[in-house]
Amino acid sequence: MSGFSQFLMQLVNGVNAGSIYALIALGYTMVYGIAKLINFAHGDIIMVGAYICLFAIGTFNLPVWLAVIVSIVLCALLGIVVEKIAYKPLRSASRISLLITAIGVSYLLQSLFQLLFTANPRPFPTIISLPPLMLGSISISAPYYITFIVSVILMTVLHLFVQKTKIGKAMRAVSEDSQAAQLMGINIDKTISITFALGSALAAVAGILYCSSYPMVNPYLGSLPGIKAFIAAVLGGIGSIPGAVLGGFILGIIEALTKAYISSQLSDAIVFTVLIIMLVFKPSGILGKNVKEKV
């Protein structure tokens, strides 16, 4: 294989990982924008989504499309329930107590799934059985291009939803100034619930797509893509929806290229270093807004 087509291949790998990161990063960024919370449990929703899809197909013999919908709906509900039980009572408390609660929820989901389904990885069924796409000298396997197409569609839909609909407008208003939004008659609790539901639904899709590329499911599956997506969200500018998408793709591509050309073992260190450099020079991220501090 020539050098150039190898480079293209790595780019494809990067875009695949990047679209998954972008989907997860959207959840992080929306929740951060609206509740000012780094939702550490978000990564574990990916894992829950993958497990639900696995059992819907394997145990209940549902068709793939129905299994995906079931998984999305249940994850959205889980997101709402977690917010209501664990985060809502602490809305007025300090940020650090909220952060620790989120970590607690993350540990809870991981250990619960480990108890229920053991730590042994389970094989994930092939849900996408389409022929690979040939682009010149390189072939792109089906999960890769489906992942890309699905995430681009979802991101576009999400963008339209946030920009054009009434609920989307409410979400933007709450993230800008929740008190003023409340005075204008916006139901904050409902808006936050919808945000969590949307973020978790996207995480479920990301989980299913992730497992169709790397077909193994275990209780800790969510933590690594979760933390990478979180970096992506910060890289793009946390709180900014286009930023999360951009950050996700940039991160995926950087990761794939460092793995291929520098060192596969050091790729995590390099990704984190990129994050540090970004934070030192432009903490608000690539597309983030610079908020001036008022005295």
Partner: peptide, 14 residues
């Protein structure tokens, strides 16, 4: 441990 974390936080700050 996870439950204890969440419950303690809720009891301390809710």
């Amino acid at each position: 441990y996870a439950l204890a974390l969440i419950i303690m936080m809720l009891f301390k700050y809710d």
